[in-house]
């Protein structure tokens, strides 16, 4: 090894380093925190290139539970939110963290489980399902991550007058995203609650023949509303409010809504646009 070789090597490294630094400087970029369901279904991968093309804004998103997404907004670590926990969202705005909340789309939650339905919950009402699962001690996978889905699930237990069974052996809290949790349920042959979009994505990964089937659906309590929230500039002066508003507008625009309506997997719609 001689010196010139080393110098070549080191200068190559430094060059790479400069590249790293250069890519950081982007002013038209918008940072979004969103839920795992919008990311896992592939909706954003489908939608965002259209948005970037039409607005010249680079949208980056990190997908996490709604609870953490709201926290990221509160801490001003992101510029805009796409989440699905209406009551938590309203509190977020009341506390002065969020400014505008705009409904964009919805789908619904469903209870899925093994095709042979060992606990026999198929077709029952939500509170009967949960009571049955509890009495049979059937394995139930919970997200356990304070996400929108998790908030909804806790609400269901509450409204069925069952204390949250979070110390029970049959109640498994994965602490992971929706698809990961469905996969855990599949491996352990248990039940779980998911949004329909993520379930369809899961079905498509399994070639349309997934081991877990929809057992309960259609109850009005299972509606799953997604909204875009901008951050209140008074709390987060550095957040890009204008760009966030542009994103919110675009999602609610005819164009955005049409694109959401056209997003299908296995011939099924994953989200139904409902911006006003």
């Amino acid at each position: 090894m001689n010196r010139s070789k080393i110098f070549t090597f080191i200068s190559a490294l430094i060059f790479t380093m400069i590249m790293v630094i250069n890519t950081q400087a982007q002013d038209n970029s918008l940072m979004m925190a969103t839920t795992t369901s919008t990311d896992n279904t592939g909706l954003l991968d489908y939608l965002i290139p259209h948005f970037e093309k039409q607005t010249d804004i680079v949208l980056k998103w990190t997908s996490t539970g709604t609870g953490k997404a709201l926290k990221l907004g509160q801490n001003c670590d992101v510029d805009v939110l796409l989440v699905h926990a209406p009551s938590a969202e309203k509190k977020f705005i009341e506390k002065g963290y969020g400014k505008d909340r705009r409904q964009i789309m919805y789908n619904d939650f469903i209870i899925i489980g093994p095709a042979n339905d060992p606990a026999g919950v198929k077709g029952k009402s939500i509170s009967d399902v949960l009571i049955t699962i509890k009495s049979r001690q059937a394995l139930f996978m919970s997200r356990g991550d304070d996400s929108g889905t998790h908030k909804k699930e806790k609400q269901l237990w509450q409204e069925s007058n069952i204390p949250l069974p979070d110390k029970e052996n049959w109640y498994v809290q994965t602490g992971q995203g929706m698809l990961a949790t469905i996969n855990v349920a599949q491996e352990k042959e248990g039940y779980t609650m998911t949004d329909r979009g993520t379930y369809i994505k899961y079905q498509s990964y399994k070639g349309g023949n997934a081991p877990l089937k929809i057992l309960v659906e259609g109850d009005s309590i299972l509606l799953n509303q997604y909204s875009v929230l901008t951050l209140d500039p008074r709390n987060c002066a550095n957040a890009k409010y204008d760009l966030a508003l542009q994103f919110s507008d675009w999602m609610a625009s005819q164009n955005g809504q049409d694109l959401i309506r056209d997003f299908k997997l296995l011939g099924q719609k994953l989200f139904i646009p409902n911006a006003k």
């Binding site: 954003l44 991968d45 980056k60 998103w61 996969n183 990964y205």
Partner: peptide
């Protein structure tokens, strides 16, 4: 990094994500 697609998603975080998805 937040595992942001096209930006801060590295190979290892992508692997973690794909495994979570069951892929």
């Amino acid at each position: 990094g937040g595992n942001i697609k096209y930006h801060t998603r590295t190979i290892t975080t992508a692997i973690a994500l794909e495994t979570n998805k069951g892929l």
